[in-house]
Simulated scan of single mutants.
Amino acid sequence: MLRRVASRLLTAPGAPGRYALFPPVLPAAARRLSGLEDDAPPPTPPFDASLLDVLVCPLSKKTLRYEASTNELINEELGIAYPVLDGVPNMIPQDARLIQKDRDAPEQQQ
């Protein structure tokens, strides 16, 4: 009985009077005609810059700077960058990326 109910729900997406578990999927030709591309990544939500007023680095408790080109929050003092994923800052220190400071590079070459 459960299988019959599930098969009816799955085989009739969008039919009047029936419920669908998944939204109907457009065929590839319809996606191309509507301007939706298969290879295009979904747009990422923008980072809310007003969060910079309350966010600080969890390690140094210093303010952060948002870098739009890399979509990261930068701690200049420690030289680390926290990623922003889908508009949400990932403030876990283990997930942060070490960045090379431009001013330290010439000193190391001497």
Rank of each mutant, 00 (worst) to 15 (best):
R97N: 05
R32C: 09
Q108E: 15
P24D: 08
A96D: 00
C57I: 03
D39S: 13
L33K: 10
V88I: 11
L9Y: 08
M1F: 15
L55E: 00
L98D: 09
A15W: 09
A20N: 09
E77M: 07
V5H: 15
R3N: 15
P27Q: 07
Q94F: 07
A6S: 10
A81D: 00
E77C: 07
A28D: 13
E107G: 06
T11E: 12
D86T: 00
L2E: 15
P45F: 08
N75M: 03
G35L: 04
P106F: 03
L73T: 00
P16W: 04
P13L: 01
S69M: 08
E107A: 15
L51K: 05
S7A: 15
T44M: 12
Y82W: 01
A29C: 02
D86A: 07
A6V: 15
A15E: 14
L59E: 05
D95L: 05
A6C: 13
R3M: 12
P46Q: 13
L36P: 01
P16R: 07
A96Y: 02
A68Q: 07
A96I: 01
E76G: 05
A68M: 03
L26P: 09
P42C: 06
P83C: 02
L21T: 11
L64K: 00
V88L: 04
P41G: 07
R3I: 15
P24R: 14
